[in-house]
Design a protein around this nucleic acid. Structure first.
Lengths: 92, 92
DNA sequence: ATGATATATATGTAATAGTATATATTCATG
DNA sequence: CATGAATATATACTATTACATATATATCAT
């Protein structure tokens, strides 16, 4: 099952959008969003692109060799607080 | 016209593959590769994913805010020679 | 120009994405 | 447990792509 489709669902939930809300923005029925998110259909490139953009994402072609770097950048990006801090006691 | 499709063509040419060669690896006729590259058809996600992988690329979902950073990383990646060097006369 | 090679275009068919609608599940909450 | 909200599933229909095949242009070397 496509990694991309799983991530689209994750980002929809983060934005607290219902399938029906995302669907109407895209002009697609809720039932079809469900199928896409389950991998029960193989959507067109334009559909995935539009869906991604509504979720503040973009579909990008990445050279295989840069995949580890870029994935680590992306996975670290959603941290609300820094994952480390300088070792100072007087930190706010 | 999709940026991704344009890049797929660019990468095919860099690998010196003909449309017919890429097509047969994918199980698609040359004529269809042509249509995809021209944006004359709206291919399925799986088709684009497969095509990308045969060209050593991967389709990745990137948060909009990270797009400038990631694009600059990617566009700098294909340099054959380093873009700078330490200022030493005795360099090879 | 001629010939070879690569890509673009045309036509037709079968498969499937997407539409519309209804119903069934799931899951939280009073 | 009952009620309601969100998601999953079902069916039938339509639109469009994948694909096969054939042909026509480019493109380029000789």
């Amino acid at each position: 099952m496509s990694e991309i489709l799983k991530l689209l669902k994750k980002h929809r939930l983060e934005l607290k959008l219902k399938q029906s809300e995302l669907g109407s923005k895209l002009g697609l029925p809720q039932s079809h969003i469900s199928k896409i998110e389950q991998g029960a259909t193989d959507p067109r490139l334009s559909t995935v692109t539009d869906m991604a953009r509504l979720l503040n994402q973009e579909l990008v072609l990445v050279p295989r060799e840069m995949l580890p770097l870029i994935k680590s950048l992306i996975s670290g990006e959603d941290a609300q607080k820094p994952m480390w801090a300088i070792d100072e006691e007087d930190e706010q």
